[in-house]
Design a protein around this nucleic acid. Sequence first.
DNA 1: CTGTTACATGTGTCTTTTACATGTAGGTAG
DNA 2: CTACCTACATGTAAAAGACACATGTAACAG
Lengths: 116, 116
Amino acid sequence: MVRPGHWGVRARVERFSEPALLLLLRERPTHGYELLEALPGVTGEARVDMGNLYRVLRGLEEDGLVTSRWEAGEPGPAKRTYELTVEGRRLLDEWAGALQGSRERIDTFLDRYEGR
Amino acid sequence: MVRPGHWGVRARVERFSEPALLLLLRERPTHGYELLEALPGVTGEARVDMGNLYRVLRGLEEDGLVTSRWEAGEPGPAKRTYELTVEGRRLLDEWAGALQGSRERIDTFLDRYEGR
DNA sequence: CTGTTACATGTGTCTTTTACATGTAGGTAG
DNA sequence: CTACCTACATGTAAAAGACACATGTAACAG
């Protein structure tokens, strides 16, 4: 984005969709497309690329943070339902801690910005 | 990122060093190396690569967000001192607004995380 | 006057992350 | 049939970040 003329400001948190995913999965097992639609509600507007979402889900599964199974019986295209593992839960907790740190850093910045 | 399993968590704000730079320059004109040392104090953690820092500074200047001049007279290596322009000041304000948004999104997330 | 350290500004390049585009396929409504 | 929605997936390019190194000034030690 450091391209002449393009100093657009978004101030997004890096890979924020990851903890959002984990949080949604903590609430209940869900399939990819549903996560895609629910994510903006958690991240508060981050538009998620579905290509990347599926890649992340597969990666999480490879490392044992989520498990998945094909959902049978239901109408419509087959759905792969993901569920959080204990390790995934731990990763979510890690994220929560890191995000608290981020909040503090932003606060510090804003204090300094306003303070004068 | 942190290799093992590649799920390391940092929760950094994208390009946080940019508003930090602008904030420091709002306080007073400064040269690159000094910014490099002052940055962690503002961002509260960001280890900035100096090569990238100088590139960002040049980019900012190309777009008229900062101006620079070679500092003469002083002992030691020549220093290029940067100063914030009106447009740069406006970009900082934009960042501040965006960061407040980030703060709120993180709060929403953490509320949902803790809320149960 | 040689070597070392600190200051100061940069370039080159690789990897990771994100964005955008496209492909496959089942199901539903007109 | 065809258009559209759901659902999952791959390919690839651009952006952002990380890592390594090059250049030069000056102070100070030995």
